[in-house]
Design a protein around this nucleic acid. Structure first.
Lengths: 211, 211
DNA sequence: CACGAGTTTTACCGATCGGTAGGAAAATGC
DNA sequence: GCATTTTCCTACCGATCGGTAAAACTCGTG
């Protein structure tokens, strides 16, 4: 672990010869992530990336490889950020609590200044040039994975008697995944956190019960 | 109205001097709409547009103006296509029927080959270069308008005793708009029409009633 | 102070971008 | 057959794109 020196950010570990690196790789990657998330792959130029990261084009290239590779690393970083919270939500004691916690992860409910509202795996995947089709389908695959995790959680709840066996877990998982996404998109379109929180409460009030 | 000649598509109206136009404006605009809808503004190049419309760059420019203007006309054409169906859905006799009809307009429930699944006003608006921010917010405004129309329909149902007055029409409208969008995005991510239709039935089974 | 190592910067690259001027083509009218 | 009109095409434009080679810079070491 590094400790910052007073004025130059030079790490205190013994220094190898050579010019010291002038950036933090993780901070730069996070800055690039925010740009790709907001603007998409095609809507992001190297001018945007250099402005956001403080790194020149050759330095970005030397550190992260080409633009596609940088985008892929940004997606991995995004998944690392969000999957911990998502798995925490899924691990709540009951299915109902797990689902509500997942819905409440939607950024429209608690907007974070400076960050886009709609999930990067959604808005980064929906449109793009023909060249980026394969890249964008990688994002879609990660979303499908998240829906599958939710489905598996609901199946476990059924085995544990925490959710009626009459419920189709796959359909319910698709329903809640749809809703989570839709709430974010509506938030991006101006829906208020108050309204979105009321929707979550309304939906949770209708939790499937035995009958 | 034009009748096609046998081999050249020449209209039968009296002809002015000059080279006959070699395209149909509405057909070309529809082709451009499909490209912008699938790829977004930044992901679409003039190479894509000329391939899709069969028109060269100078001809596109002479007919539709610059790329931004063509995109705007594509959005207008899209709205013309979809708003009739949407208003038909909203004009069903009961609020419940109206809402169900709106949800069933989501393309994921009945996919159309060759067309994107997610609403153009959603996926065309979510990401893009900084230059296109204003353009994309025009799409968002049209979506907000659609949600407002749904809210107004629900308010009317309350006045007519067709929906309990205890229900918050704005929240319910946001809920169904969220769900419609989310269903399309899940469909674009691989969710089956069967699952999505089951979600609509499940949701409609929980229609708010007096209590 | 010179050298070596690692990093950054400058200048440049070919390709593609959106857009346009002027010539060519295709029609009608005399 | 030629002039006029309207439309289309070719070739070109400046700007920006993603990417790179080589020089310059910044450090530590002897």
């Amino acid at each position: 672990m590094m400790m910052e020196a007073a004025t130059t950010g030079v790490p205190e570990v013994p220094r190898k010869p050579g010019r010291p690196r002038g950036f933090d790789r993780d901070i730069a990657l996070h800055a690039a992530l925010l740009v790709f998330w907001k603007h998409g792959f095609d809507g992001t130029s190297y001018a945007d990336l250099t402005a956001a990261t403080g790194m020149s084009k050759p330095t970005l290239y030397a550190t992260f490889g080409d633009k596609v590779n940088l985008f892929r690393e940004a997606v991995v970083a995004y998944s690392a950020l969000t999957s911990q919270a998502y798995e925490n939500a899924l691990s709540r004691p009951t299915a109902r609590e797990a689902v509500e916690a997942c819905l409440r992860l939607a950024r429209g409910l608690n907007p974070e200044p400076g960050e886009p509202i709609v999930c990067f795996l959604v808005q980064g995947a929906l449109t793009g040039s023909a060249d980026t089709q394969e890249l964008r389908s990688e994002l879609t695959a990660l979303r499908q994975q998240a829906t599958e995790q939710l489905r598996a959680r609901l199946k476990r709840a059924q085995r544990e008697g925490d959710l009626p066996k009459t419920v189709d877990a796959a359909v319910l998982a698709e329903y809640f995944a749809s809703l989570a996404t839709g709430l974010s998109v509506q938030a991006a379109g101006g829906a208020t956190p108050a309204h979105l929180n009321q929707i979550v409460e309304m939906v949770m009030a209708q939790w499937p019960s035995e009958r």
